[in-house]
Simulated assay, not measured.
Amino acid sequence: MTSLRLTLIANAATAATRQAAFPLDEGLESQGLAKATALAVSLGRVDGAWTGPARRARQTAEALGLQAAVDPALADIDLGRWAGRSLAEIAAEDPQGLGLWTSDPDAAPHDGESVTRLLARVGSWLEAAQPSQGRIVAVTHAAVIRAAMIIILDANPRAFWRIDVEPLACARLQATAGRWTLRSLG
Rank of each mutant, 00 (worst) to 15 (best):
D71V: 04
R146W: 03
W50C: 09
I152K: 00
A143W: 02
T116M: 11
A36G: 10
G134P: 04
A148H: 05
I151R: 15
W82P: 08
A54R: 01
K35Q: 15
V115G: 06
L24E: 07
I150D: 09
V70F: 11
A75V: 05
I150M: 08
A147N: 01
L74S: 01
E127C: 05
A69Y: 01
R58V: 15
E26I: 09
G27A: 13
A138P: 06
G27H: 07
A36T: 08
G48M: 09
R85P: 03
A68G: 02
L126I: 10
W125A: 13
A108R: 15
I77W: 02
V41L: 08
P72H: 09
I77F: 01
H141Y: 03
L28V: 08
V41A: 15
A92R: 14
T51R: 02
Q31K: 05
A148K: 05
E26F: 10
G134H: 03
A21V: 09
G44W: 05
G65L: 06
V144L: 00
S30Y: 01
G112V: 07
R117A: 15
R81M: 10
D106V: 01
V46Q: 08
G134K: 00
A34C: 00
E89Y: 10
L64N: 12
Q133N: 06
A21N: 08
G112L: 12
A120Y: 06
D94K: 02
M149Y: 06
G48V: 04
Q133G: 13
D111T: 00
E26T: 13
A57R: 03
P131D: 12
E29K: 05
H141T: 05
G123R: 11
I152R: 00
P72N: 13
A34D: 11
P105D: 13
M149D: 05
G99W: 08
D76K: 00
R55T: 15
A68R: 00
F22W: 14
